[in-house]
């Protein structure tokens, strides 16, 4: 017998009462500007553990209510500028986890799960990029990546399940799927498992333009054709582009390692303008930073670089990922909630 929630508010009554009484409200759950006045509460994530009673029907939300909860989080909290984004992230991350938990407890079918989880994937991908420059104490990319991968795999399984059904999907739903399938390719760049999936997907997915672009990037990565990977990443759409850009520093490093061998010469130099173009960097200074890190000599007049294969430092850490200007330009132009909810592409 499947459990079905009956609660129509973001937070079940029992939890609301308890948390108000015990003063366990998050910053985003207080009424704006008023201290200690509860505003809108959203159900917290609690670990299911031994000794915890199975949740009652009234403590679980209906599917529609879960959809509204996700929309509320993205439309209101995500855009809340009172505190830095990482606070909003922590709050939303926890509340989405509670939503995911309910998907499992209530045994939602593939269609229902997909509808709720696709926006979560978008949010995690967006956060991974936006918070990538934060120190580890503020944001742990590992956990975020792990959740992103889990959500992606779950949704992909749902797609496969839905594919068994001859019932035709709406164009909108298909578009959402194409975007997520492409995002999976980008997140798992050149990974065998992802590439094999990409190769065996139904033709209608493989023929989608965005998917094709993402898949070809991953394939070029597999072939070792880094030039194409670097040049094509900036042509990806918004969130996908931001996710891909997290690999830029590794890609640049690998290309610089190649160049240290290929342009290996004590006298000959390679112009800065050329390298900036190939490495998709916005200014010479960023290039010099790369050179410093990997021990590559810059000429005295700072217009060229000297490659020498024995100098290149292969043991040092790759530079931390940064906010890329080509991504930021894209992100500035989007309506974030609409994109996260996959209402606009």
């Amino acid at each position: 017998m499947k459990l079905r929630g009956s609660c129509e508010s973001f937070c079940p009554e029992t939890e609301t009462k308890m948390r108000i009484k015990e003063k366990l409200l998050n910053f985003y759950e207080y009424k704006n500007g008023q201290k200690n006045v509860p505003g809108l509460l959203v159900k917290e994530f609690t670990r299911s553990a031994a000794g915890v009673v199975t949740p009652k029907v009234k403590d679980m939300r209906t599917e529609e209510c879960l959809v509204r909860t996700v929309e509320y989080l993205f439309k209101e909290i995500c855009l809340d500028k009172r505190k830095p984004f990482r606070f909003a992230y922590d709050f939303i991350f926890d509340r989405l986890r509670a939503v995911r938990q309910e998907i499992v407890i209530q045994e939602f079918d593939s269609r229902q799960s997909v509808r709720l989880m696709e926006p979560m994937i978008m949010f995690l991908a967006y956060s991974l990029y936006t918070l990538s420059t934060e120190p580890i104490d503020n944001f742990d990319p590992k956990i975020c990546q792990q959740h992103l991968q889990e959500c992606l795999k779950r949704v992909l399984c749902c797609y496969d399940d839905l594919e068994k059904d001859p019932q035709t999907e709406s164009l909108r739903n298909l578009q959402r799927r194409y975007f997520i399938e492409a995002l999976y390719q980008i997140f798992n760049l050149g990974v065998f498992e992802a590439l094999s999936r990409g190769l065996t997907l139904p033709l209608h997915v493989r023929q989608d333009e965005v998917f094709k672009l993402a898949f070809n990037i991953s394939m070029d990565y597999h072939r070792g054709h880094l030039y194409r990977v670097l040049q094509n990443i900036p042509t990806l759409p918004h969130i996908m582009c931001s996710l891909a850009s997290l690999k830029m520093q590794t890609l640049r490093r690998r290309l610089l390692a190649l160049f240290s061998h290929a342009y290996h010469n004590k006298v000959l130099t390679v112009p800065v303008t050329y390298l900036i173009r190939l490495l998709v960097l916005k200014s010479p200074n960023v290039l010099f930073q790369q050179c410093r890190q990997y021990n590559i000599t810059v000429s005295k007049d700072r217009t060229a670089v000297l490659f020498y294969k024995n100098d290149y430092n292969g043991d040092i850490n790759t530079l931390k990922s940064m906010h890329e200007s080509f991504v930021n330009a894209k992100l500035e132009r989007i309506n974030l909630p609409e994109v996260l909810l996959l209402k606009k592409f």
Partner: peptide, 21 residues
């Protein structure tokens, strides 16, 4: 792109030589 492909081949030892930009 040609530069990059050749650079790759040199790195892998499939071509012996260097490029003068």
């Amino acid at each position: 792109e040609t530069h990059c492909i050749i650079a790759n081949l040199i790195y892998e030892g499939k071509i012996k030589g260097y490029i003068s930009h």
